[in-house]
Structures are given as structure tokens and as C-alpha cells.
């Protein structure tokens, strides 16, 4: 380091600790709320330390429905969110890696057109074409199905660009060697390109899983049946009922459960997460 440390290091620690605490505080309050009976919360008397009903709240939220609202057990919502996220993630990775392979390793008519058609979807987020997209899915009778929930979201310009960028760095000698051995494009893809792409796929998987799990606007429109509800939508629906009836402890327990999987993915796979986030934006 450049000059004498000491004071400056203490200041750095102090700022970072304050930052960490402020960032964590909302989740702490949420956790505390999920361990107190709903009356205490409703009265505005909730203390800032854990209460007595942790197990009961989470068990009820996960496995029991509710009689004041028409709520499904949260375990069902978790399963829906999980499958939605997995289908979106694998779908995006699969179709993007194939498109990128086609664009990089072949020469064919309308190649540029194909590339630009994929690339331009960056400028068409679902928010700017909500109702027509909804109508198409509805006309295809795909409302309340996993197909309708996921397929319209699996095109991915970002992932295609990401793979294209990576394929450009694979040395041409590998293709030439492979061709000499008499391998065709499919064999080269399976034997060489896929194994080389492992870390990139892992990195994409992490950020796309989070993207899929956290979807909001699309499932809000596409799912109407209770048993198709994802957990993020489920939370919102639990609060909408008249304020006094909101079972805040259940809502907060569900909120904790909704955060747990994607946050765990980020923390446990931090290396892939950072790689995926930073490199897809380049």
C-alpha cells in the first residue's frame, strides 16, 4: 500500500460494516416478523428479537393452506418457482448455445439477419409488448401451463452473445484437427465445444436461475389458477387481501422462503455468479 495505514483502515471497516448492516436489516426484520404471532405484529408491538412461533409459522406456511385467504401451501409455490426457473434456465442455455454455434462455425445465407434478429430482442423487453404477447399465449391455449409460463421467455440475446464471444476464443486449430480426423459439425460440437463451455454454462446457469426464479410480470399475467402460482406472485396475493386480515407472520415466512434459494445460489456459487454477471455484460 502507498502510505501509512491505520486510521484510514478503521474508517473503511466502519463504512463497510454500516453498509452491511443497512443492507441486511430489512431481511433481519422480516425474519423476526416470521417468528412472532400475527396479532403481535398487527398491533405494531413486534420486538426486534426472535419470537416463539418459528417452527409453527414455517410449518403452517409450507404445508397448510389458510382459511382466511384462499392460499395454497407454500411448498406447492416453491415447486412451481423451481420448475419455472429450471425450464427457463436450461431452455435459454440450450437454444442460445445452438444459435451461437450456428452463427460462428457456419457460413450460410441470411446469417447476419438471423444474428440481428436475435440481437434486437434486447430492445423488446416483455414490458413493452405485454398485452399482445399475452393474447398470443392465450390464443394458443397456453395460459396456466408451464409451456406458456416459460417458452416465451427463453429467447436470449445476452446468452447468445456470451457464447458467441466465447466461441471466438476457441483456437481454429481445434476445428482443423477435428476435421482432419473426419469429424463433422455435430461431433465437433459434442466432443470439443460442449466440454470447453462447461465453466461458461455454469456461470450462465447461476444468473439465469436467479432471473427465472424472480420473474414477476409474466407469471402475474399467465397464471390464474392457484396451483400454478409461483412463490413471488403468491406473496403479493397474500398481502392484497384487506389489511387487517393479512397474516403477516405467514407472509414474512413465505418471503424468507422465496429469498432462500436464489440467495443461496449466489453465496455458494459466488465465483460463477460474478463471472456470469460481469462477462455477459461485456
Amino acid at each position: 500500500m502507498v502510505e501509512r495505514r491505520g486510521i484510514s483502515d478503521y474508517i473503511a471497516h466502519a463504512i463497510l460494516i454500516v453498509g452491511v448492516l443497512i443492507i441486511a436489516f430489512p431481511v433481519y426484520v422480516c425474519f423476526i416478523g416470521s417468528t412472532h404471532p400475527k396479532d403481535i405484529i398487527a398491533n405494531g408491538d413486534m420486538p426486534l428479537w426472535p419470537g416463539p412461533v418459528f417452527w409453527q409459522t414455517y410449518r403452517d406456511a409450507l404445508f397448510a393452506g389458510s382459511n382466511t385467504t384462499t392460499r395454497q401451501p407454500v411448498i406447492q409455490m416453491l415447486a412451481n418457482s423451481f420448475w419455472m426457473a429450471i425450464i427457463i434456465t436450461t431452455g435459454k442455455i440450450a437454444i442460445s448455445i445452438l444459435s451461437a454455434y450456428a452463427v460462428v462455425y457456419f457460413k450460410f445465407p441470411f446469417q447476419r439477419t438471423a444474428f440481428w434478429l436475435i440481437f434486437m430482442t434486447l430492445m423488446l423487453p416483455v414490458e413493452v409488448r405485454i398485452y399482445p404477447t399475452y393474447k398470443i399465449v392465450s390464443d394458443m391455449h397456453l395460459l396456466d401451463t408451464f409451456t406458456g409460463l416459460t417458452v416465451p421467455l427463453i429467447a436470449s440475446a445476452t446468452a447468445t452473445l456470451f457464447f458467441r464471444q466465447f466461441f471466438m476464443t476457441i483456437p481454429d486449430e481445434l476445428v482443423e484437427a477435428s476435421k482432419l480426423d473426419g469429424a463433422g459439425p455435430i461431433k465437433f460440437f459434442v466432443d470439443t465445444v460442449l466440454p470447453l463451455s462447461r465453466t461458461n454454462i455454469a456461470a450462465l446457469f447461476v444468473i439465469l436461475f436467479i432471473y427465472g426464479w424472480n420473474q414477476y410480470l409474466w407469471p402475474l399475467l399467465i397464471t390464474t389458477r392457484e396451483e400454478m402460482q409461483t412463490i413471488v406472485i403468491g406473496i403479493k396475493k397474500m398481502i392484497v387481501t384487506a389489511d387487517a386480515l393479512t397474516e403477516w407472520n405467514t407472509v414474512l415466512a413465505t418471503t424468507m422462503l422465496a429469498m432462500l434459494p436464489p440467495v443461496l445460489v449466489v453465496v455458494l456459487m459466488q465465483r460463477w455468479f460474478v463471472k456470469g454477471l460481469v462477462e455477459t455484460e461485456k
Partner: peptide
């Protein structure tokens, strides 16, 4: 690690 996890929290959440 303690600062990056909110990225994983859904906007609605």
C-alpha cells in the same frame, strides 16, 4: 459476499 446477495432478491420481494 455480505454486500452482493441482494442481487438475488426478487424486486417484488
Amino acid at each position: 459476499t455480505l454486500l452482493i446477495w441482494p442481487y438475488a432478491v426478487a424486486p417484488a420481494v
